[in-house]
Computed example of a mutant assay.
Amino acid sequence: MFREQKIKIGDYYINYLKVGNGPRNLLFVPGAYGSIWTNFKLQVEGFDREKFTLVLWDPPGYGNSRPPDRDFPADFYERDADCAYELMKALKLPTYSILGWCDGGIVSMILTSKHPEVTEKLVIWGSKAFILPHEIAVYDKFRDLDVWSDNLKNPMLELYGEKFGSYWAKWTDNAIYSVLKTREGNICSDRLKEIKCPTLILYGEKDPIVETMHASYLQTHIENSRLYKYPKGKHNIHIKYAEDFNRRVQEFLLQP
């Protein structure tokens, strides 16, 4: 029913899916090692494809945008943001709203800050703009896949096989520590003032990865933003509460 395609963007062959024929264009940005189907299956199936045109993609080195395998230079978030921007240009979609989860939220904030002329609205969840030194312990804990929920772990193992454990260790070692070392913990906090479009921030209050202060910080520092919290939600609120999440986000995106 859904047909993925590949397109050359810079040095990469990017795997993407375009569905729907609605007048409002949406770009979905997955989290670390995420892909179209591991992250957004329930959004592909649940969003109104007569009101929206959805573009979902696997960032460089993730999912089916391989080879090559993923690497993590100091500017990997900016690289993904630039790649997403070029993808939408290549698809001839000049304006769109951006939806990003976890690392994808970071990429979405950077893309929005760099190109406000293309961004209509922004939706982010499970994301943050900085890392504090004590949070390294959280990432070290989740290096062990045994502590992951099956809802998060199993789709990744299906996609990457047994190598996923080593892939995830590479993300932890390179991505997180490079941010702390080269940027003193700043991921994109200096860019938030450049985000002017209406922004919806969603947060699961029991998220074991992202502390609640991050959601409050984003709301405080992004102009024209609002925050909605799921009291019992964890990191994957778009999966656990898909029906409510899809309804709430679509209502926000349809508001004039």
Rank of each mutant, 00 (worst) to 15 (best):
W57D: 01
E194Q: 12
Y13K: 13
P133L: 04
I124G: 04
I124L: 14
I136G: 09
V19Y: 07
H235A: 10
T119L: 00
D75Y: 12
N224E: 11
L93E: 03
V123C: 01
N15H: 06
A169D: 14
H221P: 07
G10A: 04
V147I: 09
S97W: 07
I7T: 06
I124Y: 06
E251A: 11
A242K: 11
P208M: 07
S149R: 14
A169K: 15
P231C: 04
W57I: 02
P23C: 05
I98P: 08
G61L: 03
W148M: 12
K92T: 11
P60V: 10
A90Q: 15
N21H: 12
L227T: 03
F142A: 08
E194L: 13
T199M: 05
E162C: 00
D80L: 04
I187R: 03
D140K: 15
Y241A: 10
Y167R: 07
Y228L: 15
S127K: 05
F245W: 04
A137V: 13
S35G: 11
T95L: 08
S149D: 14
H214S: 08
S166E: 15
Q219M: 13
P60I: 10
Y16D: 05
F164D: 01
F252T: 02
T112W: 03
L202K: 02
P60R: 09
F40H: 04
I7N: 09
I201R: 01
T182N: 14
S65Q: 03
L56H: 07
D103T: 10
A74P: 14
E135S: 09
D190E: 13
Y33S: 05
R226K: 13
I209G: 01
N151A: 15
E205S: 14
K41H: 11
N186R: 15
R66G: 02
S35P: 03
Y16K: 14
P155Q: 06
A242L: 00
F72T: 01
L200N: 02
H221S: 05
I195M: 08
M88N: 02
L180N: 07
F2I: 12
P73I: 04
L180E: 01
F28K: 02
E223L: 12
L218E: 00
G63V: 09
D190S: 13
G204E: 06
P67N: 00
G204Q: 05
Y228Q: 13
Y13A: 13
N15K: 05
G46E: 02
E135Y: 02
H221E: 11
Y203I: 08
D103N: 10
P133D: 07
P30C: 09
A74G: 09
G31V: 05
A169M: 10
G22R: 04
V55N: 06
E158P: 00
A90K: 15
F72P: 02
Y160V: 02
L17R: 06
P208K: 02
L180C: 11
S113K: 01
A81M: 06
R49Q: 14
N25Q: 09
P30Q: 01
K51R: 15
L145G: 10
E251F: 00
Y77N: 02
N246P: 12
L27I: 06
G100T: 04
I131C: 01
P73V: 04
R49P: 00
Y13H: 15
Y77H: 11
I36C: 05
